[in-house]
């Protein structure tokens, strides 16, 4: 084995140990707040693992959605779920149950580890086929080709899942809050680090978000990663009190939310006429059509994520005077 190989092995081993240590802390931390911080650290370490596994697209998604957006939602919830220590300790299972759970979890983990070690060699896969069929479509990123062409139905349904999740989250609001603005209201910050960040970051972040969504067909990136960055910029301005969340009854918000899935379905239906069937594209038009879908989807992903972070409406609608 070469020196590079040994070095890479040591680095991977260290990274794996850190990932597991952060996961252990997330479970063992004495309180919910340090546990959530541990989870965010875990996600960032996992992002490095994805880079090491040759998956920059997944690394971007993990950092943006799996760590960033999930972390914000969890941190907002931790602050509101304070207390209840006695209830939690009363509901914590006894030693026998912990032991049984440990045995079960250990057995599942061990079985998976054995399965990993027994994976067939050479590994079967669709890598060559996916790569060979990506270029004729005019795309440079095989992951984007899988998401938008070969398994476009998965991505379409996933985009619908986001819309339904926003509906489910909104429906958690009490009736009298319907029509109000989602989420807590933050006081306007005119001084301090957040006020500065909320004014300096969005112009840069908007450009980066749109760029990452735009290059997705040819390089790592895409609508989910770019849309998450756009949503994050809104969240920064929202948390600094510079912008207010729009009312859940606002038609423009709803239109933004469904624009992506709607365009996706319409282009998919057009496939019956201009290609072989639902979600099929004629090769010559594949890239422009995909970019149209991606643009609409970026908007909808950004809206859905921002609304999911804000949560259900928490105040009755304001009376228009």
């Amino acid at each position: 084995m070469t020196l590079d190989g040994v070095l890479a092995g040591v680095l991977d081993g260290l990274l794996a140990a850190l990932v597991l240590a952060a996961a252990g802390w997330t479970l063992a931390a004495p309180a919910a707040f340090p546990a959530t911080i541990g989870f965010v650290g875990f996600g960032l370490l996992l992002t490095l693992a994805w880079v090491r596994l040759g998956a920059p697209d997944v690394a971007l998604t993990e950092a943006a959605i799996g760590t960033g957006a999930t972390g914000v939602i969890l941190l907002l919830a931790v602050v509101r779920l304070r207390g209840g220590e006695e209830e939690v300790s009363a509901a914590t299972p006894g030693r026998a149950l912990v032991l049984a759970a440990g045995l079960l979890a250990g057995a599942v983990g061990l079985a998976l580890a054995l399965a990993v070690l027994a994976l067939p060699d050479p590994a079967p896969g669709l890598a060559a086929e996916a790569a060979a069929r990506t270029a004729p479509l005019g795309l440079g990123n095989p992951v984007a080709a899988v998401l938008m062409v070969f398994r476009g139905l998965d991505t379409l349904l996933e985009s619908v899942v986001l819309v339904f999740t926003v509906l489910a989250v909104w429906s958690m609001a009490p009736d009298r809050h319907w029509g109000g603005r989602p989420g807590p209201e933050f006081p306007r910050q005119d001084d301090g680090p957040l006020a500065l960040l909320a004014r300096l970051l969005p112009p840069v972040g908007l450009v980066i978000g749109i760029y990452i969504a735009w290059v997705g067909t040819d390089a790592p990136g895409g609508k989910f990663q770019g849309g998450t960055i756009l949503a994050a910029m809104w969240v920064v301005a929202w948390a600094a009190g510079l912008v207010q969340a729009p009312s859940v009854a606002d038609r423009r918000v709803r239109l933004m939310l469904v624009a992506g899935p709607l365009v996706f379905v319409l282009v998919g239906l057009a496939g019956f006429g201009i290609a072989d069937g639902f979600l099929a594209y004629p090769p010559a038009l594949a890239k422009p059509l995909i970019l149209v879908i991606e643009a609409a989807m970026t908007l909808s992903v950004a809206a859905a994520l921002a609304l999911l972070i804000a949560g259900p409406p928490e105040h009755p609608p304001e009376r228009v005077t």
Binding site: L53, G54, A55, D57, V58, T61, E62, I65, G66, A69, T70, G125, L126, A127, A130, A131, T134, P142, V143, A145, V146, L147, F150, R151, D154, T155, E158, V161, L162, T165, G222, F224, L305, L308
Partner: peptide
């Protein structure tokens, strides 16, 4: 490079897990 099909599934999975 790596197989794009499982990677795309993970991206879909991450978004659904977030939701």
């Amino acid at each position: 490079g790596a197989d794009a099909v499982p990677q795309a599934m993970v991206i879909t999975g991450l978004v659904v897990a977030f939701a």
